[in-house]
């Protein structure tokens, strides 16, 4: 713990690492973050893993807030609505959402709505209600109330139901998380965020954004990367299955035949 904290402190003293994006020069607020591990390895005993993010904010004042947002690799998603046909529930009305974050967790010092403005959250896509969930196939532009090129959905208000369904489903799988008090402030501008990657965590590249909020808007931000990857035996098998599917198929056959034969032989001699 002490070692990691000193590590986090050391980071802040490196000027090139802590560049505030939106900060006016006068305020001199900076924020930095580091992970205990840059790579989360999925091995055969993987049952989810805690994700701890350490950071330091320079020029942190009372009343400031810190937000940590973790985004998983983007995937395309088809959302279907079940409808009753002849007494049974059938998937219908598919809507294709593109580039949906497969994992999304946001941790903050206080509930987002207590300190952050709508525009700031929407612009940066922070929080479940502001997460960009787009279905380009259903979109068109039209002029509304004299404003040209407003993007509207062909589904009208129904698109909201679909968006909520994505968030609801992902939340149920613990893949979308909003932790109101997931960021803990320590002394001297240091903070620590604790999140959890469930066992269904998809593999790929993750981005972690850290924001320092003051007066409802981010005054400093910083981005770092995390990789979730299969390792060891899991990696070997996964690669084999996708790169040499024929060999993998034969392997599956041989394994089944051998084990079946072995069992028959063993029980016969008993």
């Amino acid at each position: 713990m002490i070692r990691t904290l000193t590590f986090a402190l050391a980071l802040t003293s490196l000027p090139c690492l802590a560049v505030a994006q939106d900060a006016p020069p006068a305020q001199q607020a900076r924020i930095a973050a580091a992970l205990t591990e840059d790579v989360v390895e999925i091995r055969s005993d993987f049952a989810g893993a805690p994700l701890t993010i350490f950071g330091a904010a320079e020029g942190l004042q009372d009343g400031d807030d810190i937000v940590v947002a973790v985004r998983g690799p983007e995937r395309d998603l088809r959302v279907m609505k079940k409808e009753r046909v002849l007494g049974i529930w059938v998937n219908s009305a598919p809507v294709r959402f593109e580039s949906v974050a497969s994992y999304y967790a946001v941790a903050s010092t206080r509930p987002l709505s207590d300190f952050a403005g709508f525009a700031a959250l929407r612009r940066n896509g922070i929080g479940m209600t502001h997460l960009p969930l787009r279905a380009p196939d259903e979109e068109r532009t039209e002029t509304l109330l004299g404003v040209p090129d407003v993007v509207v959905s062909d589904l009208g208000a129904e698109i909201v139901d679909y968006r909520q369904a994505i968030v609801r489903n992902k939340t149920r799988q613990s893949l979308y998380v909003e932790a109101d008090s997931g960021v803990e402030r320590l002394e001297g501008g240091l903070f620590i965020a604790r999140l959890f990657l469930p066992s269904e965590t998809p593999v790929g590249d993750y981005t972690i954004e850290v924001y320092l909020f003051r007066d409802g808007a981010p005054i400093a931000s910083r981005e770092t990367q995390l990789q979730v990857a299969k390792a060891g035996m899991e990696r070997v098998l996964y690669d084999l299955a996708h790169d040499r599917p024929i060999l993998y198929g034969l392997l599956a056959l041989i394994m089944a035949a051998l084990s079946g034969w072995l069992a028959a032989v063993v029980t016969r001699n008993r």
Binding site: D76, M80, D137
Partner: peptide
Amino acid sequence: DLAATPNDLYVLIEAGGAP
């Protein structure tokens, strides 16, 4: 299971590659 009202009316299906 087919006939009972499901807990969630929406299902997510991972869409691979092109539509």
